[in-house]
Computed example of a mutant assay.
Amino acid sequence: MYKKIMVAIADDEISRSALEEAQYIAATDGAVLCIVHTVTKGMKGIDDDEADNRKAGAALLERARTTATTDATPIVETRLLDAEERYGRTAIMEAIAAAVTEWGADLVVVGTEGRRGLERLVTGSVAEQLVKTVEISILLVRPH
């Protein structure tokens, strides 16, 4: 089964559900779990204060690591990723995809809101972009 599971999170309910699913699979398979969060770097209209964003991201990862670390999942790593401006709208996906490859994950878990129609066309979806980019299994977690 899976040996290295990566879960991408933000500070929202969908991410908490994705983390629960990833933690369950890691515990079942005896896998290492890596929790990642992406901080946008130098992106116009998104970064008000990069230092504050990094601090908040690190705090989010620490809370997630504490939640996910149990007797069944004793090895939980975290990584704060930088999304680079040069990638534009795909910056977050590019950062996650690079981390998946670098870490050698064999499963990536992400939450998805299941947007449809014009909203999906305008905003895009990190999850949808990952499906098209990474060459490993992806588990998409929808809201309950």
Rank of each mutant, 00 (worst) to 15 (best):
45 G>T: 07
45 G>Y: 14
46 I>R: 04
46 I>G: 02
47 D>I: 05
48 D>I: 15
48 D>E: 14
48 D>S: 15
49 D>R: 04
49 D>L: 01
49 D>H: 10
49 D>A: 13
50 E>G: 06
50 E>H: 04
50 E>K: 00
50 E>P: 02
50 E>F: 04
50 E>D: 09
50 E>T: 09
51 A>F: 05
51 A>C: 09
51 A>P: 06
51 A>H: 08
52 D>M: 07
52 D>Y: 06
52 D>H: 07
52 D>W: 00
52 D>L: 10
52 D>Q: 13
53 N>T: 09
53 N>L: 14
53 N>Q: 14
53 N>K: 09
53 N>H: 12
53 N>A: 15
53 N>D: 15
54 R>D: 10
54 R>H: 12
54 R>V: 09
54 R>N: 08
54 R>W: 14
54 R>S: 04
54 R>Q: 13
54 R>G: 01
55 K>S: 03
55 K>G: 01
55 K>N: 08
55 K>R: 15
56 A>I: 10
56 A>Y: 02
56 A>C: 03
56 A>P: 02
56 A>M: 09
56 A>G: 11
56 A>N: 12
56 A>S: 14
56 A>K: 03
57 G>D: 01
57 G>H: 07
57 G>E: 00
57 G>Y: 02
57 G>C: 02
58 A>W: 01
58 A>G: 06
58 A>S: 10
58 A>F: 00
58 A>M: 10
58 A>V: 02
58 A>R: 04
59 A>R: 08
59 A>T: 09
59 A>Y: 01
60 L>A: 04
60 L>M: 06
61 L>Y: 02
61 L>I: 07
61 L>H: 06
61 L>G: 03
62 E>Q: 11
63 R>Q: 13
63 R>L: 11
64 A>C: 05
64 A>E: 00
64 A>H: 01
65 R>P: 03
66 T>E: 04
66 T>W: 01
67 T>P: 00
67 T>A: 14
67 T>L: 04
69 T>M: 03
69 T>H: 03
69 T>S: 05
69 T>R: 10
70 T>I: 14
70 T>Q: 06
70 T>H: 03
71 D>M: 13
71 D>A: 15
71 D>E: 14
71 D>Q: 13
72 A>M: 12
73 T>H: 01
73 T>K: 03
73 T>D: 00
74 P>I: 02
74 P>A: 07
74 P>E: 10
74 P>C: 14
74 P>L: 14
74 P>N: 08
75 I>F: 09
76 V>E: 00
76 V>R: 02
76 V>P: 00
76 V>S: 00
76 V>K: 00
77 E>P: 07
77 E>R: 10
77 E>Y: 13
77 E>S: 14
77 E>T: 11
78 T>D: 01
78 T>N: 04
78 T>H: 07
78 T>P: 08
78 T>Y: 08
78 T>K: 06
79 R>N: 13
79 R>I: 11
79 R>M: 15
79 R>E: 15
79 R>S: 15
79 R>P: 00
79 R>D: 11
80 L>R: 12
80 L>P: 06
80 L>G: 06
80 L>I: 08
